[in-house]
């Protein structure tokens, strides 16, 4: 596992993808490689792209990758799609829209399934970012799935959050009210040739103006043209790319990057604590069959969860 970390630091794709796989599968001992790379991370600009299904996120990501490659930046992409709650399987199809980068050594694209994690994004995303960062990717794009409150978790991982809206979906404004408004650093109105693009643009711009400014960063609302008009599309995405870089400079200049990093670090530490403290307890209870018994007790109303939890806490206090 230690060797794996070294290889990742050397930029080896096979090792990096294996490490991410180990993280997803929660293979014991994976933290050894993470320990190896953690201190070498923190150099990449992490961008979160979120929006409703069908908003055109993958196609936009594809073009952003292209823009950064034109600017000689290396790019990592983590594309997250949902796991089926019924079968545990997943159909990950974001790659289909990013095929042209498949052979570009400067691009590393990895699809992730949510695997039932609550936040709308895979638990492995945060760590996946570190892996790509450690590989030396300049820019890392995290494309997340779904719409609504859960996807705001992206804010814990990304420095710049892009919210993609598309006219004619009907529920954009609802989604904004549901929490997307607060997390966006940049809004994109995608497929700007569609009916309703102008009014959506106006509406979002108004909302942006009415909301509290983020310490001097004026949240831009950008129009992206239809991909069916390749030239216009490329130009408008290149403009998005400029804005993203502006935002990064702003974060650095205002010393705000550390604030975001702090949030991410705290969230990760939280998870690490969970893994280090709670997980072994749960494993132990499971293995001994005690968990089942406790649940039975609760079902029979012989005791309550609070008392039981307190007992467990006392019992394991000195063990972990």
């Amino acid at each position: 596992m230690k060797e794996l970390g070294q290889k990742v630091l050397a930029g080896d794709v096979r090792s990096a993808s294996r490490l991410i796989r180990n993280l997803e599968d929660q293979i014991p001992g994976t933290h050894v490689a993470m320990q190896e790379i953690f201190t070498k991370t923190g150099n990449a600009h992490v961008i979160g792209i979120t929006g409703a299904p069908g908003a055109g996120k993958s196609t936009l990501t594809d073009e952003l990758v292209f823009s950064w490659r034109q600017r000689n930046k290396t790019v990592g992409v983590l594309a997250v799609d949902p796991t089926s709650p019924f079968t545990g399987g997943a159909l990950l199809g974001d790659r289909i829209r990013m095929l042209r980068h498949a052979e570009d050594k400067g691009v590393f694209l990895r699809s992730l399934a949510t695997r039932g994690s609550m936040g709308g994004i895979s638990k492995a995303v945060g760590e996946g970012i570190h892996v790509m960062d450690a590989m030396g990717k300049d820019t890392i794009i995290v494309e997340t799935v779904g719409v609504g409150q859960q996807e705001v978790e992206i804010i814990n991982h990304a420095h710049t959050v892009i919210v993609v809206l598309v006219p004619g979906m009907g529920d954009e404004i609802q989604a904004l009210k549901a929490g997307l408004m607060e997390i966006a650093d940049i809004f994109i109105i995608n497929k700007a040739d569609r009916d309703g693009a102008a009014s959506l643009y106006k509406e979002v711009t108004n909302m942006v103006h009415m909301s509290v400014t983020k310490g001097g960063w004026e949240i831009p609302v950008l129009l992206v043209e239809s991909v069916q008009e390749p030239k216009k599309f490329a130009e408008s995405v290149s403009a998005v790319c400029d804005k993203i870089e502006d935002h990064y400079r702003y974060l650095v200049d205002k010393n705000l990057l550390s604030e975001r990093l702090r949030r991410k670090t705290a969230a990760e530490f939280n998870e690490a604590l969970w893994a280090a403290i709670l997980q072994p307890v749960l494993n132990d209870l499971d293995a001994g069959g005690e968990m089942e018994k406790m649940v039975d007790q609760l079902l029979k109303k012989e005791t309550d969860p609070y008392t039981l939890a307190a007992e467990v806490a006392v019992r394991y206090k000195n063990k972990v």
Partner: peptide, 19 residues
């Protein structure tokens, strides 16, 4: 395959062996 519980990455058509 998705319904069988696998994680499926689908790349679509017109792929070169290199890709």
């Amino acid at each position: 395959f998705r319904d069988a519980g696998f994680e499926v990455i689908y790349t679509g058509c017109h792929q070169t062996p290199e890709q």
